[in-house]
Nucleic acid binder design. Structure first.
Lengths: 239, 239
DNA sequence: AGCCCAATTTTGTGATCACACTTCAGCGAT
DNA sequence: ATCGCTGAAGTGTGATCACAAAATTGGGCT
């Protein structure tokens, strides 16, 4: 099954975006959504074939994703794959998210408008619906929409890109964890508090509730990775 | 004058590192050292020619650097260049450095050995020597060595890479600022305090003195960018 | 059956060519 | 001299080919 395509990327209208940018968008979206599991090998030619483009732009997109550590290519081995997460690395990702994302939320607060609140309520509703149905894929999409609808307002390019890079690295693993334990135990509702604080312009509360939201989600993943250390490499042992 | 070469990269002797990795190392080193000024246009073919390689591996290295925002290619215009720094962006870089680097220093503390202390004293001595001679290039090299000798010990890949990316973005501009105002006003000596704290294993003091060191350096740059908003685009240089 | 080695396929990497587009140098007219 | 145009040179992008090395397969062995 092909999890990545060019069609659903940015109905970029009059856009003459480069092919490698479109490929990048398609791949990174798939990664954030967790549609490509950790340790899954991918290949330039296969991706290129699935996307209907030559291997060239795929190489550039992949090189970019490798730089962002959303993909890796094993050292001696020359295979390209989605990196696995060690507990050590996950803790660093958690810390970094706690640095960046609450700050983004704080910076976003002054720029909130009625339209934004409306949009956030829709996103949050979608999150709740997905949780109710136990639809992990829909949950991840809606949750991403909710967070980045806020971050986008912060007018802080560097922080925004940092957040996106962190999500790229967490995405594949998050999907596995939530898929394994179901959506039942997912972080309870900090979103409502956050929306209220955004409405009243209470930047402090926005920041702390964002921190709490992230903390709970990542804590779940930490527990999961501690319990289930090696996500079993699939088949074929080493001789 | 050619500011980037492959020879001084990792006397890699038995190393069979990919060419694009060597090119990346050469370019990023030049950028961190500030050897390529902001807004300076570079081109794939020129770099390839100077490095004695084909444009292909340069493309991959450059794509990586663009992902790290150490290079940019102007939107409509398709030229590749070193990005300029706005005040807004510099403040984000400063904040991010304050997040990552003091934490790296704290994490490094338990792993300090006598050899490390020796190395740090040498690096610090080189810093002082460079300051004495007003040699900006030597200062930047020695200062980088000092900081990353510490960061390397932290055993925190993600944070380490984040720090490196931040230095990549700050490097070109730092060179310009310090070159303009001379090395006289450079941050006074937090290095000594830091080394002492590292010796005694006082992680708290290590962290705070690292924060102070970074704060002062970046504060200088903030002042500089506020005073000298547009670093004059510089017309036509011929080599 | 289980295991090992050889041949085949597939992988990423690098080089080269083609193309559309921008920039720049040079010349002519005002 | 200044302005405006035009041809040449240079730009990043994409496609295709060549190649060494790793992964995979398949057959032959114990």
């Amino acid at each position: 099954m092909v999890v990545v395509s060019l069609e659903n990327v940015s109905g970029g209208s009059l856009n003459e975006a480069k092919i490698h940018d479109q490929v990048y968008e398609a791949l990174s979206e798939a990664l954030i959504q967790g549609k490509i599991p950790p340790l899954k090998p991918v290949s330039l030619r296969t991706l290129a074939h699935n996307l209907g483009v030559s291997p060239m732009p795929v190489r550039e997109a992949v090189r970019r994703l490798i730089a962002e550590k959303a993909l890796e290519l094993q050292p001696s081995n020359k295979r390209l794959r989605v990196p696995d997460l060690t507990e050590k690395r996950l803790m660093q990702l958690m810390t970094a998210r706690q640095w960046v994302e609450p700050e983004l939320a704080r910076l976003a607060t002054p720029h909130v408008t009625k339209d934004v609140i409306k949009r956030l309520r829709e996103d949050d509703a979608a999150v709740m619906t997905a949780l109710g149905k136990g639809d992990v894929a829909a949950y991840m999409q809606a949750n991403q929409d909710f967070h980045f609808s806020i971050y986008r307002l912060a007018d802080a390019d560097l922080f925004y890109d940092m957040a996106r890079t962190l999500w790229l690295q967490v995405g594949p693993f998050m999907r596995v964890v939530f898929g394994r334990m179901g959506t039942v135990h997912l972080p309870k509702d900090h979103h409502q508090d956050m929306i209220r604080a955004l409405e009243t312009g209470d930047a402090g509360t926005v920041k702390t509730s964002m921190a709490a939201d992230i903390h709970e989600g990542m804590e779940l993943m930490l527990d999961a990775i501690k319990a289930h250390v090696a996500p079993e490499p699939k088949r074929r042992r080493r001789g």
